[in-house]
Design a protein around this nucleic acid. Structure first.
Lengths: 208, 208
DNA sequence: GTCTATAGACGGATAGAC
DNA sequence: GTCTATCCGTCTATAGAC
C-alpha cells in the first residue's frame, strides 16, 4: 500500500530535501516530482512544513522500530550477543561491511542521513536525531557488545567505551569518505577489512 | 583593514549561510546583519551568488595559505617532523587538543565547516573542499608523519595509512560529537587524551 | 483528488535621489 | 555608498470548477 499519492509525496519530498534542503525545495518541485500540480498537494498535506514534519515523524518511527528490533534499548543486546559470540574475524568483517554498505546505499537511509546532515544547524530535531543515531546509539551498541565480550572472556579487559570509539570512528570516517564518492568505496572497504582484522587481533584474548 | 563594509558583508553572510544555508538566507537578512539596506549590498557585490562565491574564494585562499604554512603540500612536513620528533605523550595530547579546540571554537573555521557541511550535496565545490580538508589532507598529513616516525624508529613498523585512519577517525568523531553540543566537550577531551595515550603506547618502539 | 486561476507575500535586483 | 521606491518573478496557499 505504498503506492498512494500521500506516501509518494513524502518519498519525493525527502529525495529533494536530502539534496537541496527545506528552503531549496519549492512545493512546485515536489509536485513536479510526484507528477501532479502544486495545489493538489494541499489535498494531502496542509502545508510544506506539514510535509516536512510528516517525514520526520516517519523517520523517527522507523528508527524506533529498528532500535526495538535490535534490542538496542540501552540494556543489553541479548540477541546480538549470540550472533557475535562465536564469530570469526572474517564473519565480523562481513557484518560490518553489510552495515557499512547499508548506510551508504540503502535509498531511504542515505536520504534521511543527508537531510539530517544539511538541516542540523537549522532544526534541533534533525541535529538530535543525527547525533543519537550516528554517534550516541552507535557507540552505545558497540560498547555494550564489547562489555559482553570482555565479560565472556572473548576479549581481553579494557575500557569498552574507548574500544567502541576506536572501533566505530574509522567505520564512520570511511562512510563519510565514500558518501557521494563511490569511487572511494573499494579502497575504503579494504581499509575497513584491515581495521576489523587489527582490532580483533589487538583485543582478542590470547590466553584462551 | 577588516572593518570595511565589503568584508563585513562577507563575514555576516558567512555567519548566516553557516546556519541556514544559501537558500535559507535572504539578501535582506545579510543587509540587516551588516546594518544597511538590501539595495546597498549591490554596490559591493553584483548578486547574492557573487557574495557566496567571494566567501568560497576567500576560504580556498585561506586554506591554501594554511597548507603552505604547514608544508603540507603532499611531500614531507619537514618543519613538523622536528616538532614531533622528541615529543612526549602529554605534549602530543596538548597538540591534538589544541587543533581539536581550534576546529571546534575558531569562529571562522566553525562557520566554514558548517557551511560546507550543509551545502555539500548542492554544491560540488563545497563537497570537494570539505572532503579534502577534513578527510584527505588530514589523513595525508598524519600518514606522512607516521611514515617518518616509523622511518626514524620512534614507532614500530606498521601501515602508516591505517595508522592515520585509526588515529584521526576518533578525533574527527569526537569533534562531530561536540559540534553544537559544548556540554560534551569535557568528556570528549578525556576520551581524546586516553586515545592519544593508547595510540602512543601501542606503536611506540619498546626496543629503543 | 485533480485541475486552473489567482491572491498575497516575499524574493532578488535596479533606478535614481542624495 | 547609502537610501527610497519600485519592478518583476516566484513562492505558499486558497477558491472553486470538474
Amino acid at each position: 500500500m505504498k503506492g498512494d499519492t500521500k506516501t509518494i509525496i513524502l518519498d519525493e519530498a525527502l529525495s529533494l530535501f536530502a539534496v537541496k534542503g527545506y528552503d531549496g525545495v519549492t512545493v512546485q518541485d515536489i509536485a513536479r516530482a510526484v507528477g501532479i500540480k502544486a495545489p493538489s498537494l494541499y489535498k494531502h498535506y496542509k502545508s510544506k512544513q506539514d510535509i516536512f514534519d510528516a517525514i520526520l515523524i516517519e523517520t523517527e518511527n522507523r528508527y524506533k522500530k529498528q532500535v526495538l528490533s535490535m534490542n538496542m534499548n540501552g540494556s543489553e543486546p541479548e540477541k546480538d550477543k549470540d550472533l557475535f559470540l562465536g564469530i570469526t574475524e572474517e564473519d565480523l568483517y562481513e557484518k560490518v561491511k553489510g552495515l557499512f554498505l547499508y548506510y551508504l546505499h540503502d535509498e531511504y537511509a542515505v536520504k534521511i542521513r543527508r537531510m539530517m546532515t544539511i538541516g542540523q544547524y537549522q532544526n534541533e530535531r534533525l541535529s538530535d536525531l543525527y547525533k543519537k543515531q550516528y554517534i550516541d546509539d552507535a557507540l552505545l551498541y558497540q560498547k555494550t557488545l564489547f562489555q559482553f565480550f570482555i565479560y565472556s572472556g572473548v576479549f581481553e579487559s579494557g575500557d569498552p567505551q574507548m574500544m567502541a570509539i576506536q572501533f566505530y570512528a574509522p567505520i564512520y570516517l570511511l562512510m563519510i569518505n565514500c558518501d557521494n564518492r563511490s569511487e572511494r568505496e573499494k579502497e575504503s572497504l579494504a581499509f575497513l577489512k584491515e581495521h576489523v582484522r587489527q582490532f580483533g587481533q589487538l583485543y582478542s584474548n590470547k590466553e584462551k
